[in-house]
């Protein structure tokens, strides 16, 4: 019996494929893509100002409001500014760390360093931001305690705090692709460059950097996109500052169509970003 079922299936590759694909496709296409599609359609609806019910009539009012109201333009620009700053900070921190891990550390410590960089990825997201609340607390925080004596004080809760917190959260996502890129880079290239008379920094700028650029871009996809949609960090250490995600979150319960409209902004920005970087080979290096 078992044998005959097996043989019967073996002769029908199409049926096997259908059986394998049915559940995942149904889940991803119907449940997920369907939900996204419905949300996108909702973005073109409005709500009745008195009852708060959604009026299912197609119009571009929400998009018009967002494009013309300078308050929303500021939120978009601020969010973009934060995401770009976070990406730059992560890259600046990650490159020397990844280089040390891949090219200088001994084989044995290399493994430990990778584990050390990976561990915080498993520590709770919320706990990490909570940690920065304790760190950045003005006057009584840990940062003032450690760095106060050398004249560096906590910026308090606000934009800089959000940038620090998000850089902290996403730093491993930048280190790991760059580390992987550097591991693939043969040491002989560095030796050759040195033999031809190039100094350290020159080799780095002319040999290493161009070769790990795709990895850098791959890392930036994480740091940039994860920052764009975040709102919890802003809620916890951002003071009164709002990012795009906060506006979506606030409108969610009072004006869903408007929330849906705003939610399309980070998605659109990400789509443009992916389109811009598609030629760098970053997508293939993931």
């Amino acid at each position: 019996m078992k044998n005959s079922v097996s043989t019967w299936m073996h002769k029908r590759p199409k049926l096997r494929l259908t059986a394998l694909l049915a559940a995942p496709t149904l889940w991803l296409v119907v449940a997920y893509l369907g939900a996204l599609g419905a949300l996108l359609i909702t973005a073109f609806f409005t709500i009745d100002n008195f009852t708060g019910n959604i009026i299912a009539k197609f119009n571009l009012g929400n998009f018009h409001d967002i494009l013309t109201d300078p308050a929303y333009r500021n939120v978009v620009l601020r969010t973009l500014g934060i995401a770009v700053s976070v990406t730059i900070i992560c890259a600046v921190l990650a490159v020397p760390m990844a280089f040390f891990m891949a090219k200088i550390a001994k084989q044995k410590s290399q493994k430990i360093l990778v584990a050390l960089v990976l561990t915080p990825l498993w520590a709770s997201y919320l706990v990490k931001i909570y940690a920065w609340r304790t760190m950045l607390e003005p006057n009584t925080g840990v940062m003032d305690w450690i760095l106060g004596p050398i004249g560096i004080h906590s910026p308090g809760f606000g934009g800089p705090a959000i940038i620090i917190g998000l850089s902290y959260l996403w730093l491993p996502y930048m280190i790991l692709p760059i580390y992987a890129g550097l591991e693939r880079l043969p040491n002989s290239l560095l030796d050759a460059s040195g033999d031809l008379g190039a100094r350290n920094f020159y080799t780095f700028r002319r040999v290493v950097l161009p070769l790990i650029f795709p990895s850098l871009v791959a890392g930036s996809m994480f740091t940039f996109s994860l920052s764009l949609g975040d709102y919890i960090t802003a809620q916890i250490i951002g003071g009164k500052l709002q990012m795009l995600g906060n506006v979506v979150y606030q409108n969610f319960s009072i004006n869903l169509p408007f929330a849906a409209t705003i939610a399309t902004i980070p998605v659109a920005i990400m789509a443009i970003y992916l389109w811009l970087i598609r030629r760098t080979g970053a997508l293939a290096s993931l």
């Binding site: 996204l36 419905a38 949609g229 979506v248």
Partner: peptide
């Protein structure tokens, strides 16, 4: 996609 987008899409659905 940002979690907030997935979140409101599913909630809406």
């Amino acid at each position: 996609l940002p979690g907030v987008v997935t979140g409101i899409a599913l909630s809406n659905a």
